[in-house]
């Protein structure tokens, strides 16, 4: 986390003062308090619910506060098939989320259309919204979703920008 203990010799402050950077503290807070916005449209959503329930318990990783309001969330979990009629809805929800925001594309359908190579199904939501972590599987197990959340946490902790943010170097 980049914490450094200050103080060498004997004294009252010895080991009691910690220095760090604002970015690291903020990222540490962000990564441990992700508020997911679920976008469940198919069987992947059932696995997502199982992930949130007591057996797998996503709250162990600080992500149990599921927000059905995109304006109060920072992690979009796209779990299921997205049709050409649903994609504008998903895009609007993504646009409503405040920055910084991360996106998990859960399962084969959201990531590439899965077996549904048909006229009505989006062949991968990353054509329209930026995706940070993809999960393979049809549907993936809850452990896979937990792993994806942990990867998002790693990404946040590393200070890397979300996929949806254009970084401008001055």
């Amino acid at each position: 986390m980049g914490l450094d203990f200050v103080g060498q010799g004997a004294g009252e402050t010895d080991g009691n003062i910690i220095t760090t950077t604002i970015d690291k503290v903020v990222n540490w807070g962000r990564k441990n308090s992700l508020w997911p916005m679920p976008f469940g449209t198919a069987c992947c959503a059932i696995e997502m619910m199982a992930t949130l329930a007591s057996k797998f318990d996503l709250s162990r990783f600080g992500s149990e506060a599921i927000r059905f309001s995109p304006r109060q969330s920072d992690l979009l979990i796209v779990s299921g098939r997205i049709s050409i009629k649903m994609m504008p809805v998903l895009k609007r929800i993504y646009d409503q989320m405040p920055d910084p925001k991360w996106v998990i594309s859960m399962g084969a359908c959201a990531s590439c259309g899965g077996v549904f190579d048909t006229y009505t199904l989006i062949q991968g939501v990353d054509q329209f919204i930026p995706v940070d972590v993809y999960i393979p599987g049809c549907p993936p197990r809850p452990e896979d979703l937990i792993d994806a959340v942990l990867q998002v946490q790693q990404k946040i902790a590393s200070g890397a920008a979300p996929k949806g943010v254009e970084v401008v170097y001055e």
Partner: peptide, 30 residues
Amino acid sequence: LMPDDFEGHPLRKDYPLRGRGERESFNFDK
């Protein structure tokens, strides 16, 4: 089922399975 501005009737046998490009060119501004 289909969007209001959709053209054609997709369960007809002469409708191509992968569509006529509507997966890429559908109307975003609903």
